[in-house]
Design a protein around this nucleic acid. Structure first.
Lengths: 205, 205
DNA sequence: TTGTGTGAAAGTTTTCACAGCA
DNA sequence: TGCTGTGAAAACTTTCACACAA
């Protein structure tokens, strides 16, 4: 079953496996099994094996998966085998939290630029990144950054997205609710905290 | 097709429809169509109609859906027709951003308590909520709060989750990566920013 | 013996096409 | 005419069962 079309749901799980493997690696382990991985990320062992099978076989019957090799394979599939420079737009409460967040590093993301429309913030250094005016967004193209995080208020999100696309950004992580319009070639992933939270009561007994 | 089992994916979309309806209501509109709603949330019109059909018919052929009525219906299904008090644990960068976030209010969520393990923060008022020591978590049961947001570092998350379950919490929005172990009766929804971001490069041309 | 890889079956979700109401 | 509601088909995803490799 080599190199079939990878199901979307599998792609969604791959970063989770990657994080689990990262942790196992830090614990000094060299290999693991589909059962152990499954327990860590709360799926079934056959789901893990099936997911991996979409890009060909990685594991050894009897002994399991070699952690370093598997990490590299998954990183390559997700195109996380090279560093990605990221721009952040909106350095409010949420933006600052994003800048402080250490969780991006294991995936090879590095936030190297930050923009805010508040002139008082321009020039300030927050978590090692100097905040610039949003007017400077047009210079983004020269920097080779093609990933951006939008953490601005809802009302400004579409306008910022337009500017980012103009500046050559190809992928956007969007924290503002509802849909942002971009050309088809640009991928947007939206995280809406309230929308996710709103599902909780439904599932509570 | 009345009162069939509601697909999980439909439940995931309901809060999104709710937000769109909220906006339409604020714009002074009284009714809308499946096509308009679909455009706002980036799905197809037949998906919208199918989703609504799982709880019975709401709309009028020819004229569409009455916004207020539809909002109430969806809120009732999601059990968002009553206010929900929420406790926040972890008032760091992310926790503060959550406290400041206005997006919860339209769904009826109200963050009324905040806890942090840093004794220096105890007693401080942040965005109208007084921060308390995590030692006070055991008093949570008396307050009638059964929803919590975990915004603590990864290493403390499981321990906090255990305490929350002990205190009678039935639903948890978890910002720390990887899986948190809770009894089956408790629902956990995890938001992992980095894991979502990690899918972007795969989809970028 | 332990643990992988994978066809086939079962289950879920999306898409389509169209009947029918206002 | 405009727009809904829905059965049926198609597409996608998960689960199972088991052959087989170390």
């Amino acid at each position: 079953m080599r190199y079939r079309k990878i199901p979307n749901e599998t792609v969604r799980r791959l970063p989770v496996y990657l994080r689990a493997l990262h942790i196992l690696g830090q614990q000094g382990k060299a290999s693991t099994s589909s059962t152990d991985l499954a327990d860590m990320v709360a799926v079934n062992s056959w789901q893990v094996r099936k997911d991996f099978s979409y890009f060909g076989a990685f594991g050894k019957p009897g002994s399991g998966y070699e952690i370093d090799g598997l990490k590299k394979q998954i990183a390559r599939i997700l195109r996380l085998d090279t560093e990605h420079k990221v721009a952040l737009v909106g350095v409010g409460n949420l933006g600052s939290a994003v800048l402080a967040y250490a969780g991006f590093a294991p995936y090879g993301f590095d936030i190297v630029a930050a923009y805010d429309c508040d002139p008082k913030k321009a020039g300030k250094k927050i978590h090692n990144v100097t905040v610039e005016s949003v007017a400077k967004l047009k210079d983004l193209r020269k920097t080779g950054i093609n990933l951006a995080i939008i953490a601005v208020p809802e009302s400004a999100a579409q306008q910022i997205a337009d500017q980012l696309v103009q500046a050559g950004v190809k992928g956007i992580l969007n924290f503002s609710p509802l849909h942002i319009q971009v050309p088809k070639r640009v991928k947007v992933i939206t995280i809406d905290i309230a929308v996710d939270m709103a599902r909780l009561p439904y599932y509570m007994s």
